[in-house]
């Protein structure tokens, strides 16, 4: 921060002091808001015995109430959406991932479930490298009590699956679009993935909506590459692998050597020197081989558009802590 910036900062702080009443009101607002949210924004696993007990109780309730030979009750019971199955396969090399979806394409899947008048339909899904993404639409929303949905995965989901993000947005008065994303470890990402998904509540409406989503990995071709660059604060970047996926995307993997584990390295641009076109698709790194944020030698992958053939040099820029860098990395 320059002295001028600091001066402005100090000045604003001096003239803008909230009253104790305002601060107390803010505390109350925060507490009230959180009280309205059903906890657990991330996945919760349903234990098999819980499913068994709940199913048994529900069945007993229905049978006791209507009688096992009551055809009307059986019909209702039969219509109750329990599991909608569908498959998403990456057989079309031109369609892959959210990147493609953003460009108007997408891997479309079919599967929908209606509970209490609300229909949830899964629209698209992808498995790219270690990343899983699913998008869907909910229609028939009569009244929204909050702007969130609860998602749970049964235990048969891959053990390494870790949910990373969820989002939900109103498209119009009764329609919402939602998405969720997760990461698999390297081993699970090479195998077909089954995600037994239960959406238990959607913007306050009780479910459950259940889906058994099966995904097969997109084709991947690994190429070992070499290329090093020195970044600020004694940080070293070494390119190690280039993985191409069907559909035009790729993962550029690099090994970072940091001066200390608190060093904050970002990559904000990756361009092939030949055409200088931006290749970086997502600046959020994917940590590889059991490395994670806060390590001194993390191995990270960046999602990029595939590089032109015979690329000899990459221009990579970003920052290390507060210092920007722009390096040309010859690759072999």
């Amino acid at each position: 921060m320059t002295p001028d910036d600091q001066k402005f900062h100090d000045f604003v702080d001096r003239v803008n002091t909230p009253s104790p009443t305002d601060v107390a009101q803010t505390r109350a607002t925060i507490q009230n808001t959180l009280a309205q949210i059903t906890p657990a924004p991330h996945q919760r696993r349903i234990r098999p015995w819980q499913i068994g007990v709940l199913t048994a109780v529900a069945a007993l309730f229905l049978l006791t109430l209507g009688g096992i030979f009551n055809p009307a009750m059986n019909e209702v019971f039969a219509k109750a959406p329990v599991v909608g199955q569908f498959f998403a396969r990456f057989t079309d090399p031109d369609r892959l991932s959210v990147v493609v979806e953003n460009n108007g394409g997408g891997q479309h899947v079919t599967g929908q479930s209606t509970v209490n008048g609300v229909t949830i339909k899964l629209d698209s899904a992808y498995l790219e490298g270690q990343t899983v993404g699913v998008t869907g639409t909910a229609t028939g929303i009569k009244a929204r009590k909050n702007e969130w949905f609860n998602l749970q995965l049964a235990k048969s989901a891959p053990a390494s699956f870790e949910q990373t993000a969820m989002d939900v947005r109103a498209i119009n008065q009764d329609t919402y679009r939602f998405s969720f994303f997760g990461q698999l470890d390297a081993v699970d990402s090479r195998k077909p993935v089954t995600l037994p998904i239960t959406i238990s509540r959607f913007v306050g409406h009780p479910g459950p909506w259940k889906f058994n989503l099966k995904l097969t990995p997109s084709r991947a071709v690994n190429t070992a590459i070499r290329g090093t660059a020195q970044l600020p604060y004694q940080t070293k970047l070494a390119l190690t692998q280039y993985t191409r996926y069907s559909g035009g995307t790729a993962l550029l993997t690099m090994n970072l050597t940091l001066a200390d584990k608190d060093t904050d390295v970002s990559v904000l641009s990756i361009k092939a020197a030949a055409d200088n076109e931006e290749r970086l698709l997502n600046a959020t790194p994917i940590y590889q081989n059991d490395t994670h944020d806060g390590q001194q030698n993390p191995i990270v992958g960046y999602r990029i558009k595939q590089l032109p053939k015979n690329t000899k040099q990459l221009n990579i820029s970003g920052s290390v802590n507060d210092k920007k860098y722009n390096v040309t990395v010859p690759i072999q």
């Binding site: 305002d22 009101q25 803010t26 607002t29 925060i30 009230n32 808001t33 959180l34 949210i37 924004p41 991330h42 909050n146 702007e147 969130w148 949910q163 990373t164 993000a165 969820m166 989002d167 904050d264 959020t284 944020d293 806060g294």
Partner: peptide, 21 residues
């Protein structure tokens, strides 16, 4: 102000898994 803080609280709670550091 309070409306914005309420919405930010909700958005932050939902997006918290994305905060890496």
């Amino acid at each position: 102000v309070q409306d914005a803080i309420s919405a930010a609280t909700l958005a932050a709670f939902q997006a918290l898994p994305q905060l890496k550091q």
